[in-house]
Amino acid sequence: MAYFLQQFINVLQTGSTYSLIALGYTMVYGVLSMINFAHGDIFMVGAFLFFLFVSTLKLPFVPSMLAATVLTALLGVATERFAYRPLRGAPKMSAVITALGVGVLLEHLTLAINPYPRHIPAMFEGSGTWSAGGVVISQLKAAIIVFSLLMMALLDFTINKTKLGMAIRAISWDMSVVPLMGVSVNGVIAATFAIGAGLGGIAGVLYSLAYPVINPYMGVMVGWKAFISAVIGGIGNVRGAIVGGYVLGLVETLTIVFLPATYRDVTAFSLLLILLVYRPYGLMGKPKTFKV
């Protein structure tokens, strides 16, 4: 029993990372119907920026995290402005390929500027662990989980209760009517990218606290897992993405429990393939019909 509870905490931790990143995929899909394949690499840039502030510039934790988040948000806005906006009227294939290109560009740019894997210094060495009934949880892990959940709650509030959230939902409903209501479409899309990329940046910081060795390709696999989470929940659906992240975390942890750990990726991708064929709108999405 304790073993399963212990694994459950791992589910919460990996699930939180996936959910935070999945939100970026799902929000961009919601407003632009486009899969931003570069999002996983934005997560990686977040971790590297955090490293830059913490280790190279020797700033304390909170300002470093804030600065990394703001800069990744700006990076998200910049990719939208310079790579995706010129293609808004173009066929979808162009956007997909461009997004792949942006992802590889971010990876290689990071690699060119910073050719070595880096080690995030341990910042919370003093933090202890709690244990109850044979289940051990480090305070750092607990903090990561709680903070992620807080961020998701904040986002859910923003989407459902604020004016900006209403504009985002309106754009995903019908982009052509929104400007007639006096809402700036470009502004709202930029804000969506900023929020999505900012959450990705936060995920990068939290992930690098838990797994301190960072390298330019770390965003590829995590980004894919997050994308699978978004598809599980129904891409375009914010709450679906949150649930999907934890579902994927659960599936992966179960795989590790019952099979060799190296089968984790194969399971995740097989799940994606099966979902796309049988239920492409995800667990919480609605099926789309198209007219001939």
Partner: peptide
């Protein structure tokens, strides 16, 4: 060197925007 690998995706993005 490494910058060649930066150029590669940049070419792809520019192609998609200007000559898809």
């Amino acid at each position: 060197g490494v910058w060649r690998m930066v150029l590669m995706p940049a070419v792809l993005i520019l192609l998609m925007i200007f000559r898809p």
